[in-house]
Structure formats: structure tokens, C-alpha cells
Design a protein around this nucleic acid. Structure first.
Lengths: 218, 218
DNA sequence: AATATTATTTAGATGAGTCTAAAAAAGCTT
DNA sequence: AAGCTTTTTTAGACTCATCTAAATAATATT
């Protein structure tokens, strides 16, 4: 079993590996964890001793197979708890993160197995992010930003890039929700603003909005 | 907010205060926490500085009003999570304790408020122990051991004294569950064994069993 | 290539929570 | 009440996770 801190570092490295495929830099990790580079170095050494990461001085870190499995398991727990909070306890999607950050560290295989069943094996969390299954497999779909679509194209809203409460509340206010079909009626070439169709209602959105909404096409 | 360790000490002091109404001894607390007396002394000093307990050297500890409220809140969370695990996730009542020990430390007022509602404001946990309400009030009912009842008397099974997996599994095997009406048909004066009626079925139980089952009369 | 800048690591300190060993206080015996 | 036993506290050390400050390595600039 790993400590809360170790699990949080693994998760952070996992997320940063997308941007740093050759190795996550100490500074990037320090930024992500809101801590000092020296603390990161200390922790990386511990993770390295436990075979969770591959580490060479001044070269950044990469997760080992074991480290990646552990990180994915924590992410799975985080996202399942988010579904629980929204679907069962009525939390809004901008209220779940902080609590899920705590719940994701609860250690019980049976708990997660039964929670998954209780929630009916959800594939995505309330923000549209995929939930790894018990073997660590993610669903991967052709996810694009709404901003990348052209006039006449359409797709299902599956997630957000910016998950700040402000943005999520903006979406709620305008009845933009996950799973919703969005059709682009007009696209202004000057400022990239769009006129979209949402369940029959029309809505004008700016490029700031469309650049933060993920859409599943096909 | 208090640390996991601090919360566990408060809970332990709360439970021990029933047996040590004049002050919980350092050794008793060390035993309960499976730690050393010296560690207990250290922790008591911290709790005392935070006004959670009243402490005089060599006199044992007592919870302050604030300390008791904190302990009761943790117990409330523990028992609500136990109900969740059994009622919603299908855990057996002997499987819940360890996981609830972890879940009870999750910090979120909204989470507990909504969980309570989701579970329909339960008054007792799966072992029959009362769940404090959001103000810290316990239900108190006239709880007696089954062994104290006489032939012809009856009551509802509301809890267990021994909550070991072995005992709980014995109860499951013999279809003895919380909320069940138990009528004493015969009581053997020699060994205190009983013949009881459970939902129309008759069952012979020894004094060891009847001394570990709590019954609500009236 | 030498120098300046930035990134990273090392060294040493801190606080929470624990431990062992030893000292001190309290409570029993007789 | 003097001595013995048990309980409790103190003193000092350890681990984990963090910090600041200083040293070192890597990278960029001229």
C-alpha cells in the first residue's frame, strides 16, 4: 500500500506524461503539486526505490508499468466517486472534485468493485472523462474541441477542458450538459463565435467557450 | 480540522468514558489504540492544547464539550457509512468496520448531509448501534441483553455486543438479523440456554449467544 | 567557448506521530 | 511509613513529508 502523498504524485505524473512524453520534469511536477522542487526530488527518490517510477538525475521521471497501474487505479476510484456524488447524492459537477480527492485514497478492493456495480459500470465521470475499468482499460473515443468543428457538423458533448466552477456553472446556466447533441448552425469566421443548436434551442457561444468543450464525433 | 490520528483518539476516549467516567487512564487508551503509553501521553498533550480534552497529569483524560461533539461527529460518519456499505453496496455486517474506519475521516459537511438523506436518515447502523443525528443526539432505547429476559418475554433484536466476524456469521447462518422479533419459548435454568421463536421458526441457543445479543423491549 | 541563466539536487532543519528506555509519581503491602 | 509494584511521564531517537538555502548540472546567450 502507498501513502496518500505517493498516490497523489503518481496521479500527477500520469497526467503530466501526456505533455512530457520523454519524462516529467521536476519543476513541472512541483508546479502541479504546489510544492517545491526539492520536495519533488525527495519524493521521486522514494517512488524510484519502490519501483513505481524510472528516474535518472536531471532526466525527469517516467512511470513504470507498476506505477502506471497504481495511478490508473487511483484515477478509476476518483472518477467512480465523482459519479456517485453527482448521480446518487445530487452534487453539482463543480462540487465533486475536492471530496473525490479524499475518497480516491480509501483502500478496499471490494468497495470499488461494489461501487462500480452500484453505479452500473459507468464509462465516464461527470466531466466526461473516461473511467478505467477494473483492468485499467480506458474507453478512447475521437474527442475534439467544439472549436475545431465546422458549420453543419455535430457531435455529443462528452467533456470539458476547463473544469473550473465558473465554467461549469456557465454551462449549467445555458443548459449545456454531458451527453447532449450539439449542431453548429453558424460559425463566424472573424471571431470564431458559433450559433449552435441544443435540443432545439439556439445559443450563441464565443470561442472561449467552444475551446473548452470536448465533443465526440462519428 | 483535525488529523486522522486525533480523530481516532477522540473516538477511543469517547467509547472508554463509559467504563471510566472519572477519566480515561493512559494505559486503557494505549490498549484501545494498540500503541504505547508514552505515545498516548504525547497525543493527550496535543489534544489538551487544542481544548479537545481536559487533562491533568496522572489523572487521566476527559473529553471537553468540543471534544465530545467532534467525537460524536466522527461516530456519526462511521455509522452512516456502515449503513451505506450494507444497504447499498451489499456488504455483510461483518465486513464493514475496516472500510468505515477509513471513510469516517472524509471531510465534507455536504457529503454527510447528502449521504444521510440518501440513506433515508437511518437511526441505527447495521450492528444496531444508534446513529447520532446532525446535532449529535443519539436515540436511546431500553437495550438489554437477550440473556436477561425470562421465559415468555420478547423483544426486537437491535444490536450485538461481540461484533467479531465469527459471531456475525453465526447469526447470519441462523437467520438472526436486526429488527427481528425474538420470543423466549423456554429457558433452561441449569445452563441458561434458550428455545426462541424467530419468525415462526424455533431455535435453540446457548447462553454465550444470548449474552451477546441486544434486545429492545417495550 | 566562456559566461549567464535556469533547472535540479543536496544539505540541513522542522513538525507530526511514533518508538524505547529511563525517571518519577501513585497506589499497594505489610 | 517504608518498600515494592504498577502507572504515567519524560527524554531522546526515528520516519515521513515538507521546507529554505546553498551547491551543482544543464541549457542558453553572446
Amino acid at each position: 500500500m502507498f501513502s496518500l502523498s505517493e498516490e497523489n504524485y503518481l496521479k500527477a505524473i500520469f497526467h503530466l506524461e501526456r505533455s512530457y512524453p520523454t519524462g516529467v520534469s521536476t519543476n513541472a511536477l512541483a508546479e502541479e503539486m504546489s510544492t517545491k522542487a526539492s520536495s519533488v526530488t525527495d519524493m521521486i527518490k522514494r517512488l524510484s526505490e519502490k519501483k513505481l517510477v524510472a528516474y535518472k538525475k536531471y532526466q525527469g521521471v517516467k512511470l513504470s508499468k507498476f506505477g502506471r497501474e497504481t495511478a490508473v487505479e487511483v484515477i478509476r476510484k476518483h472518477r467512480l466517486w465523482e459519479v456517485f456524488l453527482v448521480d446518487k447524492l445530487g452534487f453539482a459537477w463543480d462540487e465533486v472534485h475536492e471530496v473525490a480527492e479524499q475518497l480516491e485514497h480509501i483502500k478496499s478492493d471490494k468497495l470499488i468493485k461494489e461501487l462500480d456495480r452500484f453505479l452500473d459500470f459507468p464509462k465516464r465521470d461527470p466531466h466526461g472523462d473516461p473511467i478505467p475499468d477494473s483492468k485499467g482499460n480506458f474507453v478512447t473515443s475521437n474527442k475534439v474541441l467544439l472549436a475545431e468543428l465546422k458549420k453543419g457538423e455535430s457531435g455529443i458533448c462528452i467533456g470539458v477542458k476547463d473544469s473550473s466552477p465558473e465554467f461549469l456553472q456557465y454551462l449549467d446556466k445555458n443548459n449545456i450538459a454531458l451527453g447532449q447533441l450539439i449542431v453548429i448552425l453558424e460559425k463566424e469566421s472573424f471571431d470564431q463565435s458559433m450559433l449552435i443548436n441544443l435540443n432545439g434551442k439556439e445559443l450563441k457561444i464565443s470561442n472561449v467557450i467552444s475551446s473548452n468543450l470536448y465533443i465526440k464525433t462519428s
